[in-house]
Amino acid sequence: MTDGSHAAAPFPPLASIVLVTGKGGVGKTTIAAGLAAAAAKRDGKAVLVEFGDGDSGKRVLAGARSSGVMHEVVEPKTALETSVGRLLGSRMLAKVFIGNFAVRRMLRAAPALRELAMLDAVGHIADKAKGRRVVVDMPATGHGLAWLRLPLQMRDLFGSGGLYELSERLVHRLVAPRACSVVVVTLAERMVLQETLELCSALEKEVGMPPARLVVNRFPQPIPPGAIEQARALQTEAGSQLVELLEAREAARSEALITLGGASSLGVQLRPLLLPQAGFDPNAVQVADWLVSQEAA
């Protein structure tokens, strides 16, 4: 385990499309914005792609308006109409198809096609960006993996037809380490970490995309050795409260390091990037500077 201050082995460069995934609430959007801001600083421009309403991206980019990061919001309904329109040769036909009373209900119950269409939208945004970095803020863990599996599963299932061709295209455009890198964001909590390492392993085994970076956000600062013993020696009620707090804190920290240290047993060969805990969550520019300082941008 390194503390990230001296690079053991350099990180491999990131591909032009970067998918950022992880459990909800770990700071995925902030890291995604930081990766985009770092690329924008280097290349002049970069794109941050967000699914849904675009609120989160706007929030984290608020402090980085002039950073050259373009914010693209992929809205499910539009993405579906555009994708199906391309397959059927006309957007009008797509509307007829999607608007059919039974098809509409089927799509609401099983949104796989809509999700494929949203990945298709990412592919087209990347084509337009002409090699500039496109960072995608993916949905939370399990769902993010399911999305990446989708093109492979659909390709294998369909065999031929328009959706087969779309899936095949996406497998090459997105589910390929040369075209696309995955960055996994997590926290130093044992359960979250364990789940994250399983995700890393599943990404490699199930979709052939080992993560290119593992960012452990809000990593707690160490406390000086001996402090817990000294707090115990106070032998007051306040002292024992302090002991309990310090112990819980150290336990969380060392458990996290142990879990990360055991990552290789899961086949995860990845040096974790530990982003130290600060008062408030950092903004996109601060994360970008940190990533650059770690030679991980």
């Binding site: 406390i223 000086p224 050795p225 001996g226 402090a227 817990i228 000294q230 707090a231 106070l234 007051t236 009620e237 306040a238 002292g239 409260q241 302090l242 310090l246």
Partner: peptide, 18 residues
């Protein structure tokens, strides 16, 4: 309880932890 802790005379490590 934080305010009940002694404010001085503690070892350096504990002061730093606090």
């Amino acid at each position: 309880w934080v305010d009940e802790l002694p404010s001085e005379g503690m070892p350096a490590e504990l002061t730093a932890a606090l």
